[in-house]
Design a protein around this nucleic acid. Structure first.
Lengths: 247, 247
DNA sequence: ACGCTACTGCGTAGACCATAAACAGAGATC
DNA sequence: GATCTCTGTTTATGGTCTACGCAGTAGCGT
């Protein structure tokens, strides 16, 4: 087994393991540049525009050249998502786990906002790329000193991650529908409450119609971060209810 | 505006709005059968095998026929996901909001387990299909009688949904890697802890290595629902911390 | 200096994919 | 019976990923 990690070669490259082979012609590109080109295309024209051809075009070469750096398109996408996380600065401070984790969640949200397309890439396994692991480390550090078992720490981070990611996804889609090009999506969103009202029977959906009557579904136009603040507070309260009794 | 909902025609069909036009030849298929065929293909061969051609083959017709029932592949996928939720029975009981919401979450998890492929379909907007709305209604009913504002109720449901969905996704991928065909994924998962250890520097990732040392990443083999129970309890505690002080 | 050999970029081609457009027939309505 | 709408299907277009193979490059061992 030795030092074979079993990871795809491009991932090992991203981790900095694996020295570049010394023989052969000099490489015209680098994994970094390929991934960066992918990120550029996704950022400018959306994840749907990311094809091997398009990315290669951005670099002035042809599609097949990219396969010298990446074994498949899925690998490229995974590395793009990793890159999108950005370089993670130190997050945990000395102001307690709660403040730290909240900063952590807001940092993740900011990264998702910067690269909304990264939310559209289908998740294909547990995190294994450098920046996502570094980010996990930052989250875990916030919990250092708390009376939680290791397994519990991981569960806490997972819970928080899933909430943040889901909210970022919803929020980005709403934002895209409002600002973006698709007029059908925009209209659907603008009339969301009305559509629900028209399609459901108040007698059959009483709880839903209570919300419709309260205009809950139409206030999405503004869409500040209030809902995120609210949900985040709920999740943190839940964690606090676990930690506090032990202290 | 009248009764034009602005929804795609196939969605109106799924809701039962829209009478079938009386002219022209009798239809050879039905929207239900098309969606059911898609679900069958996805269940048997995974979401990746769902192509218009493959689904049409399942029905003994040709790809273009499906476009008489569905305007695009995305619509078909959305309807398949809706179908996967299954018929929702009454969930809210008289044993309090917490028990109700927990049943609700477990019901959702069961549906995801029954149709893991539905987690791979990229989410493309707020829920608008019959069964997902019915499911939302069930969740909201659990909160009837609680001192929560309408907007808060929706936020609570969203928080719970996102947690459940994320956990189901992770759990299904782990399950697929262990049982499924891809030996690379299986090996990655089996050595997950070891790989992390090999690729990261303990000095740079102290919090992570604490977890690795505790074998947290290797106990995934068993993977019962313990983590879901744990996270669910956290989320519910968070909601309880909001409700209790008001009662 | 001179193969050897590993490695490079890239062109070609195959297998699929979603779907636009046009068409011949079915069957209810006038 | 004529009309007119809706039906399934055929054909065609432009896109996707990527397996394969080729010609050329540059370091290494001799």
């Amino acid at each position: 087994m030795g030092d074979g990690t079993g990871l795809p070669a491009s991932f090992e490259m991203a981790w900095g393991v694996r020295e570049r082979p010394t023989k052969g012609p000099r490489r015209a590109l680098s994994l970094e540049r390929v991934v960066a080109a992918g990120v550029a295309v996704a950022g400018a024209e959306g994840i749907g525009a990311v094809s091997m051809n398009r990315v290669a075009g951005e670099l002035g070469t042809s599609a097949m050249s990219l396969y010298r750096y990446v074994a498949s398109k899925d690998e490229l996408l995974a590395l793009m998502v990793d890159q999108a996380l950005g370089d993670v600065a130190d997050i945990a401070g000395d102001d307690g786990w709660r403040m730290g984790l909240e900063r952590w969640a807001w940092t993740a949200l900011a990264a998702y906002r910067r690269h909304p397309w990264s939310l559209q890439v289908p998740v294909s396994g547990p995190p294994i790329t450098p920046k996502s692991i570094a980010f996990l480390e930052q989250g875990l550090r916030c919990l250092t000193g708390t009376p939680l078992a290791p397994q519990e720490k991981l569960s806490v981070i997972m819970t928080l991650t899933s909430f943040t990611r889901s909210w970022a996804l919803l929020s980005s889609q709403v934002g895209a529908a409002l600002a973006g090009g698709d007029p059908a999506a925009a209209e659907l969103l603008a009339n969301y409450g009305a559509i629900l009202a028209e399609v459901t029977d108040p007698a059959e959906f009483p709880a839903l119609h209570e919300l419709i009557a309260a205009d809950v579904f139409d206030s999405a136009d503004e869409m500040p971060d209030d809902d995120f603040v609210f949900g985040l507070a709920r999740v943190m309260d839940g964690i606090e209810a676990l930690i506090d009794p032990r202290a």
